[in-house]
Amino acid sequence: EFTQISGYVNAFGSQRGSVLTVKVENDEGWTLVEEDFDRADYGSDPEFVAEVSSYLKRNGGIKDLTKVL
């Protein structure tokens, strides 16, 4: 089950073990991109978060400006 990723309007994530599946949706709710990120592939949590965040930004993730990150 996908849940909204904090700080984004149209990005959602689903966690299974160490694998986080993220997706970005358009205004109609269609999935634009979907990608798996395995936490085990990264040396640290900040590196993992930075990679996921960068992916979302590159692929149309819209920041939720009503929330302070």
Rank of each mutant, 00 (worst) to 15 (best):
E1A: 11
F2G: 05
F2A: 04
T3K: 14
T3V: 12
Q4I: 14
I5M: 08
I5F: 07
I5P: 04
I5Y: 07
S6V: 11
G7V: 05
G7Y: 06
Y8C: 09
Y8R: 06
V9D: 03
V9Y: 07
V9F: 07
V9C: 12
N10L: 04
N10C: 14
A11S: 03
F12H: 03
F12S: 04
G13E: 06
S14M: 14
S14N: 07
S14T: 09
G17N: 04
G17D: 03
S18A: 05
S18V: 04
V19P: 00
V19R: 05
V22N: 01
V22D: 00
V22G: 00
K23H: 07
K23P: 00
V24T: 02
N26A: 06
N26V: 06
N26F: 06
N26R: 06
D27P: 11
G29F: 04
G29C: 06
W30K: 13
W30P: 03
L32V: 11
V33A: 14
E34R: 10
E35K: 15
E35R: 15
E35T: 12
D36H: 12
D36Q: 14
F37S: 01
F37A: 00
D38N: 09
D38Q: 02
R39W: 07
R39V: 02
R39E: 03
D41A: 10
D41E: 08
Y42S: 00
Y42K: 00
G43R: 11
G43F: 08
S44N: 06
S44K: 01
S44Q: 01
D45T: 10
D45S: 06
D45W: 15
P46F: 15
P46C: 15
F48D: 01
V49D: 11
V49H: 13
A50E: 09
A50C: 13
E51Y: 10
E51H: 12
V52K: 01
V52C: 06
V52I: 13
S54N: 13
S54R: 13
S54L: 10
S54C: 14
Y55N: 02
L56P: 03
L56G: 00
K57F: 10
K57W: 08
R58Y: 07
N59R: 04
N59C: 13
G60P: 01
G60W: 09
G60S: 03
G60L: 04
G60I: 02
G61W: 05
G61N: 02
G61Q: 03
I62D: 02
K63S: 09
K63D: 07
D64L: 08
D64P: 05
L65C: 15
L65H: 11
L65Q: 09
T66C: 15
L69N: 13
L69C: 15
